[in-house]
Amino acid sequence: MTETPTAANQRLDRRKRHKQLMYGSLLVGLIGIVVGALIGQYLAGVLIYWAGFLGMLAIWQVSPVTLYDERDTELERKASDYTLSVLAITGVLAIPGLVLLESEGLLTLPAAFDGAVLVFVGIFIVFAVIYTGLRLRA
């Protein structure tokens, strides 16, 4: 049965308000960890960050209205897909190219490069494991 216009709008307003609260909680956490790091209060910063993150999850879970629908999920799926594609293309072209330039003495890669490559490879290993798991279950 269709709700009255007022009831429907109230419900949608509540969804909007709860989403704003979620993002607000996360934002407080992010600001907390950055400010904490800047003033040397790392423990307090991390605690605020965790509290903000947990607050976001709590609002999401206890909210009586559905905060995300199937279109949101679809958009996230597409964004993840495009992100992985961009990462893959960038990695395939950039990493071997940079290594080649270094081996030819044309470039000195920073020490962080190896770590970045490891993180990059790690992302695709996690993807492969999850994909395989999903495929076996499908």
């Binding site: 269709t2 709700e3 009255t4 009831a7 709008n9 949608l12 559905t66 629908d69 199937e70 279109r71």
Partner: peptide
């Protein structure tokens, strides 16, 4: 035709008005 707003339909089927 049913005289509904997008908001009403959204609530009726459990999605956002944007959807």
């Amino acid at each position: 035709h049913a005289g509904e707003s997008q908001a009403e339909l959204a609530v009726a089927v459990g999605v956002s008005r944007q959807s």
